[in-house]
Design a protein around this nucleic acid. Structure first.
Lengths: 174, 174
DNA sequence: TCAGATGAGTTGCACCGTTAAATGATTATG
DNA sequence: CATAATCATTTAACGGTGCAACTCATCTGA
């Protein structure tokens, strides 16, 4: 059991040299980009990237209010995780909970004024980081290429869920 | 403190609509692709993606032996993390430890025959997943575009570390 | 040779995420 | 209308990761 790898699994199609280079480069980005973004937010705002995404999503919702389950879907996280995140944000005074008046099974997460202020304060630095790490180093044509590539990969991962359409800034109020 | 966002931080440059779409698509990939790859490995082989990267890296080293610190650098993980991963792999009989004869400060991680067998057995399914999720949905031109984009982003994150040059299969022995 | 400095690795602790079971509310069914 | 089934959320137990403190080996400079 050592030579000729692929004796079963119908002789897997290995990656060629170019594909391997591409794959390794992608893996690096997959590992380092999230941690770089997390580092910026943690350092400058004391929150995680995930927490920021939740805050940003909530800040753009009507009345800055959303059901926890919708928020979980939006931020692509599990329900228990979202429950804990909301608990943390609530403890910091940025969000409060209320049962959904229409259906008591749902819990609404409501962003407080302090939460809104936090997003407004945090967003510019975060967007700046996104721009610096992603858009600045790319040529004019590459963002479009990247977009197409990401859509195709997402299509392969999950034919449904074509990435939620959400803004990434505190919705310019009014 | 609520309107006109960006009163400080010298009026941040917001993302325009195209950039935002690209950014959201990339975020989805950043979240879902690693978890999809993890799911495949967990389901078919009972190991995490990170553990597999470590095993794969070790399987290609001379004598299937590497210093733990080099392995940590290769897999882009911290030293404590690598120490624990090696401990897990050792417990499963796939790796053993030995002090470096040349310099007792280093510890060598040595892949056992069982570990080699595990990699040989696991690799095809993993490569298949990589191919299915990434290369199959892309056009002929896109892998090269993706490679260039990733290199540029990595350059912005960390001008050094131009992603380790490592293979991604059990090096065909001999 | 010996005390201190450096460096690899490990360990303890806190935090975060996942999974599975528990809770509370609502709807379906008899 | 009572009971069961379903759904959103929470809670509990467990595993993995980062950080800081600790151990041990080696090197440095008298």
């Amino acid at each position: 059991m050592e030579g000729e790898l692929g004796s079963r699994e119908e002789a897997a199609r290995w990656l060629d040299a170019d594909e391997r280079r591409t794959w390794l480069a992608l893996v690096s980005v997959l590992v380092r980009l999230p941690s770089a973004l997390d580092a910026q937010l943690q350092r400058d705002a004391g929150i995680s990237n995930f927490e920021y995404q939740v805050m940003a999503g909530l800040s753009e919702a009507p009345d800055r209010t959303m059901r926890i389950s919708d928020l979980a879907a939006l931020a692509e996280g599990s329900l228990p995780r979202m429950s804990q995140v909301i608990a943390r944000l609530e403890k910091r005074g940025w969000v409060r909970r209320a049962p959904d008046p229409g259906d008591g099974r749902y819990t609404l997460a409501i962003m407080t004024d302090a939460g809104w202020a936090k997003v407004v304060e945090t967003a510019p630095g975060h967007v700046e980081a996104v721009r610096r790490l992603i858009f600045d180093p790319l040529t004019k044509a590459q963002p479009r290429q990247l977009h197409d590539i990401c859509r195709r990969i997402m299509g392969a991962i999950d034919p449904d869920d074509q990435c939620p359409d959400r803004l990434d800034r505190p919705s310019a109020k009014r």
